[in-house]
Write a protein that binds this DNA or RNA. Structure first.
Ligand code: ZN
Ligand code: ZN
Length: 517
DNA sequence: ATCAACGTTTAA
DNA sequence: TTAAACGTTGAT
């Protein structure tokens, strides 16, 4: 069941060793004293700044110790970045950047020049220190990355913490034999999935990280009313000159807004809060079929906005905007499926009503308390399929989670158990399906129906994890108003009927849809 | 969507 | 106490 796709790619941090960036101007040595506030923000109008031709010299001043520190840290963290920090390349990141640049061109020359002059070179030592402190505290964000060509391009690696900021990653191996993220608590919010604090505390050797991460997560998930703080790392944040020409600058006295060119990219993002926290299943499987790095989600179920994933102290970017009852996210060589609990509740709902239903469900599912799931470890790759994930029968799932405590936990668990019993009663076992699948991958020709067997997906159909799907007869798109099969299409000679919860209409009657058929 | 205005929080 | 600036609201 998949619809839109997004890309998860390793982010190649651009190396931009710009002298301006690493060389801190020593303003005090400058004969020209510009009017600055405590933060070093030049508050004089740009026109004034430009009148002083020496203003530029302030920015290209002698290197200070701060520069050395910054450079050294940059080198160290660059190492960490390239090897350890996966960050998605946001498709809209480029767009945003582009938008920003368009905005720039719209401005008059003065603003542009101000942008050119605006380099981080005027950092105080203290500022540099603060920046570094924050860099090690804050998790990296791709929004500040990949802005090569921009005068204000900031090397991501410059912004990252050192190797020791990722203690878990420092140990060799990591993603080899077992799943590198040990099972724990995850909290799902519209902004992403977060490791619960309790789970985080289990993380060995991450003590220092814990508090920093704790801050982030608590701020992100707990109280949405809290004022967010600028990241301090993104290009706008690194600007220190008010343009004095944008609406915010012009309206400063009454508007109390930061210069538009200095507005933090993070703060521009809508604060996560559109949707309520939602119980999810997490299914973690190795990325076998996803060599392209694409994730796919279905339509019409629920929604997850872009956001930060924090797994075991590592941060990952969830790129794009997913809508579906499950969302696959590539995490390193693994794929994490976030399965929205609400799907259970409207399996029989009509397509047209689905969204509305979801809204209700989401509300219903949003108690004040945290909704979290336990990530449980399956004993065997061949473990029983989960109700929502027949793929388990294909042997791909190494870990999966079940809801252990949430408002809907009891209900859904009982439903799941019931379905489980139903399944065991006999019709269509998952393991059987997987075995048949193995045969099928060798046999059938694309596009040819293979009654009772498997066939490759026709063009335009969603690929099953292995690229095949059991198919009793012929593939047909679902008619509207009927529950999609896990992969969205199903052949039913007798015509389509609404499914009873969790079942497929098949020639021999209804079968549980999660065991293959 | 952008803007202006205001209240409010935050850190210095 | 003060300056900076986030969040919100209401008008356009
Ligand atoms: Zn401005
Ligand atoms: Zn920022």
């Amino acid at each position: 069941m998949s619809g839109s796709g997004g890309l998860m790619e390793g982010n190649q941090a651009r190396e931009e060793e710009d002298a301006r960036d690493s060389c801190c101007g020593d303003e005090d040595s400058s004969p020209v004293v510009e009017r600055r506030n405590r933060s070093g923000i030049i508050s004089t109008p740009l026109s004034k700044s430009l009148k002083h031709s020496r203003a530029l010299s302030q920015y290209i001043a002698t290197c200070s110790a701060a520069a050395a520190v910054a450079t050294a840290t940059a080198n160290a963290s660059r190492l960490a970045q390239s090897a350890l920090v996966p960050a998605g390349v946001k498709p809209n990141s480029a767009a945003t950047q582009h938008r920003a640049q368009l905005g720039l061109t719209k401005l008059d020359r003065g603003a542009l020049v101000s942008g050119l002059l605006d380099s981080p070179s005027g950092l105080h030592l203290a500022q540099a220190a603060e920046l570094l402190r924050r860099a090690s505290m804050l998790l990296p964000d791709s929004s500040g990355l990949g802005v090569g060509g921009d005068v204000e391009a900031v090397s991501a690696s410059d912004s990252l913490g050192s190797m020791t900021d990722f203690p878990l990653l420092s140990s060799a191996g990591g993603v080899g034999a077992g799943f590198p993220f040990h099972p724990g608590l995850f909290i799902m919010t519209p902004a992403g999935v977060f490791l619960a604090d309790s789970a985080l505390s289990q993380v060995t050797g991450a003590s220092e990280h814990r508090q920093a991460h704790g801050e982030v997560t608590s701020a992100a998930s707990a109280n949405g009313k809290k004022k967010r703080k600028r990241c301090g790392l993104c290009p706008p944040c690194r600007r220190r000159i008010n343009c004095e020409q944008c609406s915010s600058c012009r309206n400063r006295k009454t508007g109390h807004q930061i210069c538009k060119f200095r507005k933090c990219e993070e703060l521009k993002k809508k604060p996560a809060g559109g949707l309520e926290p939602c119980t999810v299943h997490l299914v973690i499987v190795p990325v076998i079929w996803s060599t392209s790095g694409r994730w796919e989600v279905d339509s019409g179920r629920w929604t997850v906005d872009s956001g930060q994933w924090t797994l075991d102290g590592r941060q990952w970017e969830f790129q794009g905007h997913g809508t579906g009852d499950h969302i696959d996210v590539v995490v390193g060589i693994y794929k994490v499926m976030v399965i929205g609990e609400p799907a259970r509740f409207y399996q029989q709902a009509e397509e047209s009503k689905r969204k509305q239903a979801v809204r209700k469900i989401m509300t219903k599912l949003s108690p004040v308390s945290n909704l979290f799931v336990h990530v449980a470890r399956c004993q065997s790759p061949r473990s029983a399929p989960t109700p929502t994930h027949p793929q388990a029968s294909l042997g791909n799932i190494r870990h999966y989670c079940s809801i252990s405590a949430s408002t809907t936990g009891s209900e859904s668990n009982s439903a799941a158990r019931e379905r489980e019993r139903e399944r065991e009663r006999g019709i269509g076992g998952g393991v059987q399906a997987s075995e048949r699948g193995a045969e099928a991958s060798a046999g059938p020709q694309p596009g040819q129906p293979s009654p009772g067997g498997f066939q490759p997906y026709p063009r335009g159909f969603q690929p099953y994890p292995r690229g095949f799907q059991p198919c009793p007869r012929v593939f047909q798109p679902y008619p509207r108003g009927f529950l999609p099969c896990p992969r969205g299409f199903l052949s039913c000679p007798g015509g389509f009927q609404p499914y009873p919860g969790g079942f497929l209409l098949c020639p021999g009657g209804f079968l549980p849809y999660y065991g293959g058929f």
